[in-house]
Amino acid sequence: MESSRRHFLTIAGLAALGLGAKPVLNALASGSAGEFTGGVDAFKLKPNDKALKAKQWAMVIDTRKIKQASDLEPMIAACNKIHNIPTFEDKRHEIKWIWEDEYHNVFPTAENKFLNDRVEHIPFLVLCNHCENPPCVRACPTKATFKREVDGIVMMDFHRCIGCRFCMAACPYGSRSFNFTDPRPFIKEVNKEFPTRMKGVVEKCDFCAERIDVGQLPACVEASNGILTFGDLYDPKSNVRELLKSNFTIRRKQSLGTEPCVYYIV
């Protein structure tokens, strides 16, 4: 009796150990990132050949070319459409990746009492700044939001997000939205090629990482009629750098040291 019980325990223990060890063995077997060697089950993972490359993507918004809200509409609509952004009646639950607001709200720390007429009246485009030193990435307890090593995009892994919303508190630009409920019923026209989100996760602009990775420019840039310029911040010959060299630009809340990568020509 005694010995058979011990025997059972040993087997049960070994079984538990085996179950625990399986993922480890799997991880060992799969070798280094993106390689899996061994017969018919071998595979390789690699970037798409057409993928656009940069050290740090950046955007320049030429606000001189903006006259009224309708100039921004195509960009916002393009983004909303391809990313399955829902429309909520309730303002509290809004999901926004790219939207417009007044100068006072976009640049609250650089506010002049007497602004020139143009700046006072034109709408400003706002989106995630894809900061070089992003506080949201620092705050995230699961690395669900992270900075892509290849090109500096501040990315969201919706599969991993636990919905603690620490990133929303950490973002000094209000660029993040939370899915307070299932967004699907609120999406007007679904783009079947891009996933929707589920309730309980945070989302934001991803600089169209899914398009950049297959050689396309971000949707808003494509629809911008020259208002938006997108390029590599660290390539001295890039279109973005050319614009930064020849124009005076401002960024949102520069004093916070987050190093935003969205520049505004005012």
Binding site: A42, K44, V150
Partner: peptide, 22 residues
């Protein structure tokens, strides 16, 4: 499921979008 997990990790986190089989 294991493969899908590898895929999503590759696509979302490593910006690898292409899979080459044996």
């Amino acid at each position: 499921m294991h493969l899908l997990d590898i895929w999503r990790h590759a696509v979302v986190r490593n910006s690898d979008r292409t899979f080459v089989n044996a």
